[in-house]
Design a protein around this nucleic acid. Structure first.
Lengths: 206, 206
DNA sequence: CCTACCGATCGGTAGG
DNA sequence: CCTACCGATCGGTAGG
């Protein structure tokens, strides 16, 4: 007979942890990953600071967990929505459209978490910065694979500068987040789509 | 006979204030405008917190003064360097080149102050956010004027979508700052120049 | 420009 | 998961 019946079941604990992370991600997207304080998060959750901290140990662990939670949301909302798209250029177009749509729908109150957190931490050092850089690198790697496939399939020109194309796509997305968050410019998604169309058209095999 | 001989001359006080702002701008570009704390700034300046605060009154006033100082540096380094460029497309090209060069030379340790501060404050409200939004709007207005002149001069196509062009240029610059700060990618300036060339070429009168 | 404070909040710990 | 703390730091003030 196992010594069970803890105060809270493992499942309930895990659920609380997930709720904390969802709230933390929303706060961090709008107010920054450093602005996400234990006191603020605890107040939002109607918990004590110690209760929140108990799930993570340190603030840095909380920040790393929020980065992971952000990656999960992004994966679900962008690559996760286009798995059915045909390989090559159609897949790239679908990924870009899902990305624009993700920002357009304001899934997180502060826009793209990674854009905000990266700008916040790019001048620092440590595990959080490294985790953010790693996520950015992973995402670029994903893009790179799909662009290469589009070249192999003959959709894009054989001399396509893959890193140049990634650079330009990232710029279009950074601008979209910028104009949405700072100017609340509802024409920004249309501009992003136009810019993406023009940029991809310039790389199409002629 | 005026009651003069204060402890410090007006000129010396102004100079100290300027030194504080220069240091504050460097800190803020790397660690954020909120991460610029009075204690940190005072320690860097080998002054007391009260000594620093005396020049500004409140932290918010310090932040607003840093925003103004950033605008002065940017004006000097970008538009200030291309006043001799001929009106129209050559002026736009010169401005973009000065902008890339400004980021390439790492004038501020954390890259573009406005990019970092805008990302930090775009989800908030208040005078600092408003000042940053105003500076962004001023700069876009400047770009818009030069693009319109290039259209009038017949350098750019008459049906040029001015705001679309601004959007794409801003995206290229945001990406430049992103890849420089996060990846220390020394190929990023070349990519920015290539993207600018392609984008402007697409708008040239055919 | 300084010293000497203030209340509030920070991340974190002890103990239950 | 809580209460009750801790030392450090925050922005800011008083008084000189």
């Amino acid at each position: 007979m196992p010594s069970v019946s803890p105060r809270r079941s493992v499942a309930a604990t895990r659920e609380t942890r997930q709720r904390i992370l969802e709230r933390g991600l929303a706060i961090a997207s709008a107010e920054g990953l450093e602005g996400l304080t234990l006191g603020r998060l605890a107040a939002d959750m109607a918990m004590s600071k110690a209760g929140v901290l108990g799930h993570f140990g340190t603030k840095e662990s909380l920040q790393l967990a929020v980065v992971d939670a952000a990656a999960e949301v992004f994966s679900r909302e962008v690559p996760g929505r286009v798995r059915q798209a045909p390989t090559g250029l159609p897949h790239i177009e679908a990924v870009c459209e899902a990305w624009v749509s993700y920002l357009e729908r304001n899934v997180l109150p502060g826009g793209c978490f990674f854009t905000a957190a990266t700008a916040e931490f790019d001048g620092r050092s440590g595990p959080v910065r490294d985790a953010l850089a790693g996520m950015n690198a992973l995402w670029r790697r994903d893009l790179r694979i799909h662009i290469r496939r589009a070249v192999s399939a003959g959709h894009l020109a054989p001399d396509t500068d893959v890193d140049q194309l990634i650079y330009e796509i990232v710029g279009i997305m950074l601008a979209l987040n910028h104009f949405l968050q700072l100017e609340h410019d509802d024409q920004a998604p249309a501009r992003a789509r136009r810019a993406l169309k023009r940029t991809l058209a310039g790389a199409v095999r002629s």
